[in-house]
């Protein structure tokens, strides 16, 4: 089936303005035991911009995203080669503190995963880990984070309700609030809207535009239109014959969608493949 080329809903969207590089993925390959899931990806992540990873399913977008805060460490047999620089420092270098990296590079997951505790405790979770016990500070930061996640109006009259009791979209915004409460520098989002209905999806997309003023955002999406709508830079990944994911093209979103350099990218965004 042939689709119309993806329309950018904001045609006046300016080409991304240059910005400092927050993270650099340099020659990264990821192995699961002997299987190579990602091969040799080079990619910059710009500060206060939204970078989207798109590509056919199974091409390793999520795997690549998870290398950025070392969540792959959790999977037995997973191994990362190459470097991932955060502010110029390799997060995979010996002596790096994985706890500190994950605090600086937060993450929001595909399915909302609030803890089975109150909204307040959910947001305060990371703060309490950092040893903040003072009620006044906690109150202030919880409110600030919930406001930033556009959830405050919905929950302010009952912060003690269970986080699990919220609707799916609200749960996801709660997870965003929880992530931004500890003031990470980068927020990774792994298909954050794939489990949500269209209205909740729109709310979150709008939210991202305000969040990027303070945070650097990397988002994986299976939805090209979404990438086109919200991101400043897009990386298109694909799968090689040996099922290893690799980077096909990276560039400012507008350019990548309107004037792709690679044939494969063009095929993909016009719906001829994938």
């Amino acid at each position: 089936m042939t689709q119309q080329p993806v329309a950018l809903n904001r045609t006046d969207k300016p080409a991304a303005v240059a910005s400092a590089t927050k993270m650099v993925i340099r020659g990264v390959s990821v192995y699961y035991k002997t299987f190579r899931a990602i091969k040799n990806v080079d990619l910059p992540v710009y500060e206060n911009r939204i970078t989207a990873f798109i590509g056919p399913s199974g091409c390793g977008k999520s795997t690549l995203l998870r290398t950025l805060n070392r969540m792959n460490d959790l999977i037995p047999g997973a191994r990362v080669e190459g470097k991932v620089l955060l502010d110029g420092e390799d997060i995979y270098a010996a002596g790096q503190d994985v706890v500190d990296i994950r605090r600086r590079v937060g993450m929001v997951f595909q399915r909302p995963n609030p803890f089975p505790m109150s909204v307040y405790d959910n947001v305060a979770f990371g703060l309490r880990l950092l040893g903040i016990r003072q009620k006044s500070i906690l109150d202030e930061v919880v409110e600030r984070s919930l406001r930033a996640a556009a959830l405050w109006e919905h929950v302010c009259d009952n912060l003690n309700q269970s986080g699990m009791a919220l609707s799916g979209g609200q749960q996801q915004r709660l997870c965003i609030a929880r992530a931004i409460a500890v003031e990470p520098e980068v927020i990774l989002m792994d298909e954050p809207t794939s489990a949500l209905d269209p209205i909740a999806t729109l709310t979150i997309e709008d939210l991202l535009q305000t969040l990027k003023e303070n945070f650097t955002i990397v988002i994986v999406t299976h939805n090209m239109q979404q990438a086109a709508r919200i991101s400043d830079y897009t990386a298109f990944l694909s799968m090689d014959d040996d099922r290893a994911g690799y980077l096909v093209e990276f560039g400012p979103t507008v350019e990548l969608f309107t004037n792709p350099k690679e044939k494969l990218t063009e095929d993909y965004i016009t719906g001829r493949f994938g």
Binding site: D97, V99, D100, L127, L129, L130, G131, I132, Q134, I137, E140, V141, R144, A181, V182, E183
Partner: peptide, 18 residues
């Protein structure tokens, strides 16, 4: 707004938790 890290001694916090 004031950053939470004004209130946190990260190094001490990390050491204790580790």
């Amino acid at each position: 707004p004031e950053s939470i890290y004004a209130h946190v001694n990260l190094r001490r916090n990390y050491r204790r938790r580790k």
